[in-house]
Amino acid sequence: MTKKNFLVLGAFLGWFAVITQFILMINNRAASVPETIVRFFSFFTILTNLIVAVYYTIHWLQKPTSLLFRLQKPGILSAITLYIAVVGLVYQIVLRSIWSPVGIQKLVDELLHSIIPVFTLVYWFLYEKHNEASWKSIPSWLLYPLFYLAFILIRGSISNFYPYPFVNVTELGLQKVLINSSVLVFVFLSIAIGLVACSKLLTKKVPHI
Rank of each mutant, 00 (worst) to 15 (best):
G10E: 10
I116L: 03
L195N: 02
L126S: 00
I116N: 03
E128K: 07
G156M: 11
Q105K: 12
V90N: 02
F161E: 07
C198M: 15
V90P: 00
L9S: 12
F119V: 01
F125C: 14
L107C: 02
V169Y: 05
F161R: 02
M25N: 10
V183D: 05
L153V: 06
T20M: 13
C198S: 15
Q72I: 03
Y83Q: 14
V206I: 15
L142N: 06
P207Y: 08
L153P: 04
N5E: 15
S78E: 12
Q105S: 15
F147T: 07
I115Q: 07
N131V: 08
P165E: 06
E132V: 09
F161M: 09
A17T: 06
A197E: 03
I209D: 14
H113Y: 02
F41P: 02
E128M: 02
K63G: 01
T48Y: 03
N168Y: 09
N168W: 08
V87D: 03
I76P: 00
V18I: 15
L111M: 13
P117H: 07
Y164H: 06
Y144R: 05
F43T: 12
T36L: 12
Q105V: 10
H130M: 08
E128F: 04
F43D: 15
F119Y: 09
N180A: 12
I84K: 03
